[in-house]
Design a protein around this nucleic acid. Sequence first.
DNA 1: ATGTTC
Length: 476
Amino acid sequence: MDLSQLKRRSDFEWEIPQRGAMRVPAVIYASEALMREMDQKVYEQAVNVATLPGIVKASYAMPDAHWGYGFPIGGVAAFDPAEGGVVSAGGVGFDISCGVRCLHTGLARADVMAVQKELAEMLYYRIPAGVGSTGAIHLNETEMDAMLAGGAKWAVERGWGEAADLERTEERGQMPHAKPGNVSALAKKRQRDEMGTLGSGNHYLEVQEVTEVYDEAIARAFGLARGDIVVMIHCGSRGLGHQIGTEYLKRMAIAAPQHGIRLPDRELACAPIESDVGQDYLGAMRAAINCALANRQILTHLVRKVFADVLPQARLALLYDVSHNTCKVEEHRADGGTRRLYVHRKGATRAFGPGHPDIPEALRAAGQPVLIGGSMGTGSYVLAGTGESEARSFSSACHGAGRAMSRHQALRTWKGRQVIDALASRGIVVKSPSMRGVAEEAPEAYKDVSAVVDAADLAGLAKKVARVEPLVCIKG
DNA sequence: ATGTTC
């Protein structure tokens, strides 16, 4: 990115001052090094978002921001419905409510290493992964609607999990105001056989070791200590969310001009929050959030069953489950008052600070766990929300490493086998149905997740708590 | 991300 057009507010905060059609400034949080290698498209897209009606304070980009559909991935924007604010399908992303869930195991490294290969084989055998993968669960129309309204709560009620899991899931496992009736028959059909499946791309399920602790007190509150083994699940709403995104983008492309909204980029298709299309999308998107929450809940159940067979002494308790592709109604302080805003986070993780009422009681004093998925082999991070991120980014942080190289370029550079062998030599067992997928997801095709997380920490978006590194990775 | 093609 060309930094000459930005105003440096501080070491980790860069402003694109308001000009032209921008209603607010744009703000990017990153180190100078990350800024220099960041795609120029992030600048353009953050500026474009700043022109949308009803946007409040600023259009934000996180340290892992990169080029997305309309909005940058790693983008945060909040809109006020009372000021003509909009909701945008491209501001949420195609994989609605994609997110990360982290489970304690109570195990140590030696427990896992003694059965590492068997554990990997069993997880791979029992957890469907890859494009178009289907599971053992098949939903009829009634159950589909119950799932879309009930989320993880629905899954737990049907035996896939424990009531305690819901306490540790955003929205207590059930996104309110979901409208299954707003989800098309095609979107439902695509999802009928896909519950409890991982999907593809950067989605993964990993058994990881806590290798570093940066904040002892918060780590203790989160139940994490160096040497602990955890399970991290990164996936979303599969075909259903994608279909909803596709359909509503088309409807919003038509709706925007009808409501007098001038778009600097067609991909910014949006509709006023208080319009029919806007309300329809919010109902469908919330149903997709429930789909993703239910999906991660069912996957949790499948993981528990594998551990019960392979490592029966394990006790898999949920630390937290947080999404990074959503639009949520939240109260935020802005312009001297508290306002109810529609906060879009696309490739950005909610990061509520200590004391926020939506954080589970047992974790409330420490701040919300912010789960950051790295690329396979490079490690992932647990952070905690801070009080100051409320003013900085509507309580949002980064979501992952972000690609440094296109999938195409990665395919030309590596073979899947070669990536698997290289990780095996570092003690990491990778299982995947797709060698092509593994090559595309080679660790070197991603930015350095540590640099991203350090920038998020130093910018005050969230606080570093622990680093985890994989021992077993199931890749879609 | 994605029945990898609007």
